[in-house]
């Protein structure tokens, strides 16, 4: 089964241990720039709530544990730790955890190259898609060109013109290069004729004259 990863959560090393030691820890939610923001907000709320709850629980437990230690080391203060005192301590810890939670959740987009690698890049998928599309659309031009050549008879005459002395078996690249050069020359000549002609009729006449004279 293939999974689509749009967000991931980074939990720092020794998360629980740091919380037990009352150290601040940060959870980082890394997300793709194009993900749905409302879903991200919901996820952030859930993570923050879980973080706050855990922070609160640990801080209260720490407070009670501290009182237990104090009580064990000094039995004389035992009377001081009555139920009212414990409740007050728990409330204080609750307030502290609300004002200064140990767990923070932040949201960001991939920053480093390693993080960004699995992310989707529109230009990287868009451009090759268009490139492959255009390349295969050119097969239509290839087919049309071959038909025109067949119609005009150049395809049949192809083997007896300038290529006659060149064996395609031995020099296929030279054959291809020569074909490209002929295409380039004829196109450039067409552009030249278009540039120096004033009307369409003049361009047609000029190209015919050049073809007859040059041919």
């Amino acid at each position: 089964m293939r999974l689509k990863i749009r967000r991931y959560l980074i939990i720092p090393d020794n998360f629980s241990e740091k919380l037990s030691n009352a150290e601040h820890v940060t959870l980082t939610l890394v997300e793709h720039p194009n993900v749905d923001s409302s879903t991200t907000q919901t996820l952030m709320d859930i993570l923050s709530g879980m973080g706050d709850d855990q922070s609160l629980e640990l801080q209260i437990l720490d407070g009670i544990h501290l009182m237990g230690v104090m009580q064990a080391t000094n039995p004389e203060v035992q009377s001081g730790f009555d139920i009212t005192r414990v409740e007050q301590q728990a409330k204080d810890q609750f307030e502290v955890s609300r004002e200064n939670p140990l767990v923070a959740v932040i949201e960001r987009q991939p920053a480093s190259e390693a993080e960004a690698k699995p992310a989707f890049d529109l230009s990287s998928s868009f451009v090759p898609g268009l490139c492959v599309l255009f390349v295969f659309l050119s097969s239509s031009a290839v087919a049309r060109g071959l038909f025109k050549e067949r119609k005009s008879g150049t395809l049949r005459r192809f083997p007896i013109i300038g290529f006659g002395t060149m064996s395609i078996r031995e020099h296929p690249l030279a054959w291809a290069l020569t074909s490209n050069l002929i295409v380039l020359c004829s196109t450039c000549m067409g552009v030249l004729i278009a540039a120096i002609s004033h009307t369409e009729v003049q361009a047609g006449g000029l190209s015919n004259a050049l073809l007859w004279v040059a041919g």
Partner: peptide, 20 residues
Amino acid sequence: MGVMIAAIAKSDKQADSIGM
């Protein structure tokens, strides 16, 4: 693929359409 289209099409318009 272009040459194959030229080989199986019966006219240049058909080749163009098939290609597109």
